[in-house]
Computed example of a mutant assay.
Amino acid sequence: MSEFDRPHRPIRRPDLAALAGAAAEVEPFARAELAAATAAAVITHGRSGQGDSLVDLADRVGLDTLAELWRQEQPSSLPGALWALYLLRRWCQSNGDEVTRLWRAGRHYAPVDEVVAGVSEAADPAAIEALADAVLHGAYVGDFAVALERAAAFFRVIATGRRETAEPGRDGDRERSLAERNEETADGLTMTAQTWRQNPL
C-alpha cells in the first residue's frame, strides 16, 4: 500500500492546529503517519470541489501549524511536497525581490525549466508571486502532478540562479548549499509527481 492509498477522513481547518500540537509528542513513525494522513485529507478535500480554496490554507491556520505537521517529511512524499508548495508561496510573498533576482539570474541557463515553471515574461515580484499562487491553485483544481512539476522546475531555475550569482567565500558557499537544497526539493517534487500519476488519490 502506498502512502496515497491509506484511508482518510475530511479534516476541518481547526483540526489541523490540534493535530500539529499532537505531532510534537509522538514517535517519528507515528508522526510520519499523521503527516501522510493529514496531507491526504487536505489534498482530497481541496480537489473535491467542496469548501473554500485551500490556496491560502497557510494564511488561515498559520505556516507554523503546517510546519509542525509536514516540515520533517521529504519532498518525495505527499506531505513534504505540500509543505514545499506552501513554503514556496510564502517565500515568494515575503521575499519577492530576492526570488526575482535569483530567477532572472538562472532562467537563461535553464530554458526548459523556465518554460515548465511558466513565470510570465515580465518576471517581476508580482509575476513570481502569481506563479506560486497558480501552482497551489493547480494542485487543487488542475493536474496535481503538473503543479508539482512546475514547482520543481521553479526550484531548479532558482538553484541555477544561486550558483550563477554566488561569490567566492562563505556567503557564496551558503548560496551553493542552498542551491543543493533547492535541487533536492525539485527532485523530490518530481518523484511525488510520478507517484501521483501512478496512484492518485
Score class of each variant (00 low, 15 high):
100 T>Q: 15
72 Q>N: 05
31 R>P: 04
144 F>W: 05
31 R>T: 02
84 A>R: 14
36 A>T: 15
106 G>T: 08
117 A>C: 09
139 A>F: 12
110 A>F: 09
153 A>S: 05
59 D>P: 08
130 A>K: 12
125 P>E: 01
54 L>A: 06
114 E>L: 12
151 A>Q: 03
171 D>A: 14
31 R>K: 14
141 V>C: 10
70 W>Q: 13
99 V>N: 03
172 G>E: 14
65 T>F: 07
118 G>T: 10
32 A>C: 04
136 L>Y: 07
112 V>D: 12
109 Y>R: 06
157 V>R: 02
41 A>M: 07
79 P>E: 00
89 R>G: 05
39 A>P: 13
74 Q>R: 09
130 A>R: 14
99 V>C: 03
112 V>Y: 03
115 V>F: 13
33 E>T: 09
83 W>H: 15
32 A>W: 02
116 V>I: 15
92 C>G: 01
37 A>G: 02
145 A>P: 06
163 R>M: 11
61 V>F: 03
35 A>T: 08
103 W>T: 13
157 V>Q: 01
73 E>F: 01
134 A>I: 05
98 E>R: 06
133 D>A: 09
111 P>S: 05
126 A>Q: 14
138 G>S: 10
165 T>W: 02
107 R>M: 14
40 A>V: 06
169 G>A: 01
138 G>M: 12
140 Y>L: 10
169 G>H: 00
122 A>M: 07
66 L>V: 14
137 H>S: 13
121 E>T: 15
57 L>M: 07
151 A>F: 04
52 D>W: 01
162 R>K: 15
69 L>S: 07
68 E>T: 01
94 S>E: 15
53 S>L: 04
32 A>H: 10
118 G>S: 03
123 A>W: 08
158 I>T: 12
173 D>Y: 00
173 D>E: 11
116 V>F: 08
146 V>K: 11
157 V>S: 00
174 R>D: 12
36 A>V: 13
129 E>Y: 07
41 A>T: 07
108 H>A: 13
98 E>P: 00
158 I>G: 02
58 A>N: 10
135 V>N: 05
57 L>S: 06
142 G>C: 06
72 Q>G: 07
60 R>E: 15
150 R>Y: 02
113 D>F: 04
142 G>E: 09
128 I>M: 02
166 A>N: 09
111 P>N: 05
70 W>R: 13
126 A>S: 14
120 S>D: 12
116 V>H: 03
